[in-house]
């Protein structure tokens, strides 16, 4: 961002003619931060999301109970002062399971989003930068990928590879990149004709330096929003797969496989605390991440003005 500041100051100063004004000019990053903090919902969502992260990853600090240890004499207890979210059909604390489950759900969400972003940026950059045949092949591939709803292939692939944490992460991460690819490619295409890319090429810089040092920083803005939606999408995919009993198997708690209990009508009706709490945690997390994503998108949108 520092190099960008210089460009902005140098370019704008003589035009405005006012030296003092020019010094006050903020970097795009600072402007974006300022806009983001003006977006009240996004700020609240960030705070709530950080709280969820802390209580999930610091779960042992907040609950003395073991999320997988069974205690049959305590089963099906309604929420009380000892078990604030009650216990499940094997006498495990729902509160402990929700917190520890958050760890897994968030871990899956974040790592799968990281994988899909990596693939998406790589393919999108290659398609946009090299164009022609590379572009043709990559774009046809994304077209085909997009005719399969991701969850459908996930179901098939997990049916083949079998459930499990690593498989679920790899499958989700490996399948939801097409949207990122399209986004990055679109951004790259608009950059290709621009002077800074031409100048870099004229200097004889190797392609990878132009891509990583000159182009990718310019994609970061829309990519940030895309990444947050990828995280919420991945959390939902894991929850959906586990809900159908094909994701991460019990006893490891995740929000998805805890909600799976609700498919049993008795549990749904008689022990609602077993599924309400993970459902609320999932919903709140998804809402927060989506609000953060919206905030980031608005913040990085240069058309948005700020008073």
């Amino acid at each position: 961002m520092n190099s960008m500041r210089n460009i902005f100051v140098k370019k704008l100063a003589p035009e405005s003619g006012d030296r003092k004004k020019a010094e006050k000019i903020e970097t795009p990053g600072q402007l974006a931060m300022k806009r983001f903090f003006h977006h009240k919902l996004a700020v609240v969502a960030t705070i709530v999301f950080i709280i969820i992260l802390i209580i999930s990853f610091g779960a042992p600090l907040f609950t003395p109970y073991d999320p997988v240890g069974m205690s049959l004499k305590d089963m099906h207890q309604a929420p009380s002062s000892t078990h604030i979210m009650g216990t499940d059909n094997l006498g495990r604390s729902v509160f402990a399971r929700t917190l520890y489950g958050g760890r897994i759900s968030l871990l899956v969400g974040i790592t799968a989003a990281a994988i899909s972003t990596f693939i998406g940026v790589f393919l999108g950059a290659a398609a946009g930068y090299f164009g022609k045949k590379v572009d043709m092949i990559i774009m046809r591939l994304t077209d085909v990928m997009m005719t399969f709803p991701p969850l459908i292939i996930m179901l098939t692939v997990v049916a083949i590879t079998g459930p499990g944490l690593i498989n679920v992460i790899l499958v989700i991460g490996g399948l939801v990149w097409p949207q990122t690819t399209r986004l990055v490619r679109g951004q790259f295409l608009t950059m290709m004709g621009q002077e800074f890319v031409l100048a870099a090429k004229a200097q004889g810089l190797p392609d990878w330096i132009i891509i990583f040092r000159h182009c990718i920083p310019n994609v970061m803005a829309p990519l940030m929003a895309r990444i947050s939606f990828a995280v919420s999408g991945a959390i939902l995919s894991e929850a959906g797969l586990s809900f159908l009993g094909i994701g991460i198997p019990s006893p490891t708690p995740t929000w998805g496989n805890m909600m799976q209990n609700a498919r049993n009508l008795d549990v749904l009706q008689l022990y609602p605390w077993m599924w309400i709490f993970p459902a609320v945690f999932t919903l709140v997390t998804i809402l927060c991440i989506n609000f953060i994503g919206d905030g980031l998108r608005d913040a990085f949108d240069p058309k948005q003005l700020i008073s």
Binding site: M259, A262, A279
Partner: peptide, 9 residues
């Protein structure tokens, strides 16, 4: 933000 399965249950 409401996934179908949560809305469903």
């Amino acid at each position: 933000s409401m996934p179908a399965f949560i809305a469903g249950i």
